[in-house]
Design a protein around this nucleic acid. Structure first.
Lengths: 199, 199
DNA sequence: CTCTCGATAGACTGATCGGTCTATGAGAGC
DNA sequence: GCTCTCATAGACCGATCAGTCTATCGAGAG
């Protein structure tokens, strides 16, 4: 369980919200499921999240976003763009396999949750933007030109999210393998192109 | 309206299901919304889809999948890989702008709908696989090696789905622009690499 | 004409939804 | 000891959920 139960109800609620939303989406996650999964009293939701389900989901999306961006930032510290790509893809692959394709990306779940749940959508959008930024900075540090790094970082994020979604639905990591292979080729080609230009 | 109303209740239901699911997801779409949007009698659902909502959603996902794959097949007939990529991305871009970022991809919505709605998830997975196949065949026809075409096609589908998702959440087509730019660079580099190898 | 069958409209069910409420208990600070 | 606060447990609310049912209507076939 992601919830050691030593944590308070607020932490348990956030952790359970992230897990259940990854599993069934925002609209598919009911408060009853949430209370049972987090073993929390009904009142505790409104103690910590006066706005109710919407506020809880938004907060859990922001929290998940911090985790995701934090990992990306650590990956972006590597000085080889191929290693950065590998790190990001590998993280997605492990997340899928560890839970037997049961959990998707929390940011994707929030992003597609629609006009109701608008705060969650905004949190997802901000996370995706920051994710791209962080990767972009990392790729630039490895020698890519700024403009190129922006495009590559954006592609990496989009491709990994898309492949994760495809892989979960198909219950196969092949889409992630293909994406890693091609992204690796791309960053090498872009690095080489940048080298030539600056020669 | 996508429903000319001349069509029978079955067609109206399918069209409305696709639209509403693109907007709010599977779990977020209620039968009442569906009936109001399609101006259809409650009984007509069970006349045409005895399995109820689940069967309707699965059928609408398969229908949407046929449309998506059909478009991809037409794009894949072009003899320039760059044009193929442009066609696919441009379709996504127009879909977003036409509805002011209100509608996502029906296949994505079905893919992330979770273990409930399993038929919809399977339909989404099959569509994604066929989509990749169709693009792969097209790219191979333009001269890419089979193995390379597989990887590139998979990346194109994943990247476009991911970028579509990011673009809708952020209400900006920039992610799609970045993806198109980098995918264009990639297919050119892969084509060149293939050329060299066969020289 | 009648008979039939799909479409429509809408009442109705039990279950579940998100949210509010009260009551009890456990622990910290005074 | 006495609050005061938060966590818990669970009853309760109106609204909505998916699904079933009945009744009426209209078009086509006999």
């Amino acid at each position: 369980m992601a919830t050691p139960d030593a944590a308070g109800p607020r932490e348990r609620l956030l952790a359970s919200a992230i897990t259940l939303v990854r599993q069934r989406g925002v609209a598919g996650t009911g408060l009853n499921d949430l209370l049972a999964h987090s073993r929390t009293a009904r009142g505790s939701i409104y103690q910590h999240f006066p706005g109710g389900k919407d506020e809880l989901v938004a907060a859990s999306t922001r929290l998940a976003g911090q985790v995701v961006v934090g990992r990306a930032a650590r990956a972006a510290e590597l000085d080889d763009p191929v290693a950065i790509v590998h790190q990001v893809v590998e993280r997605a692959r492990r997340g899928l396999l560890e839970h037997d394709f049961g959990l998707g990306c929390p940011i994707v779940a929030a992003a597609v949750s629609g006009p109701d749940h608008d705060p969650a959508v905004r949190a997802a959008a901000e996370t995706l933007d920051r994710w791209v930024e962080v990767l972009c900075d990392g790729l630039e540090r490895t020698g890519l030109e700024r403009r190129t790094a922006e495009g590559v970082a954006s592609l990496v994020v989009s491709a990994v999210e898309g492949a994760l979604l495809h892989a979960r639905a198909a219950r196969s990591v092949v889409p992630l393998d293909h994406v890693e292979e091609q992204l690796t080729f791309l960053v090498q080609a872009q690095s080489a192109a940048g080298q030539c230009a600056t020669d």
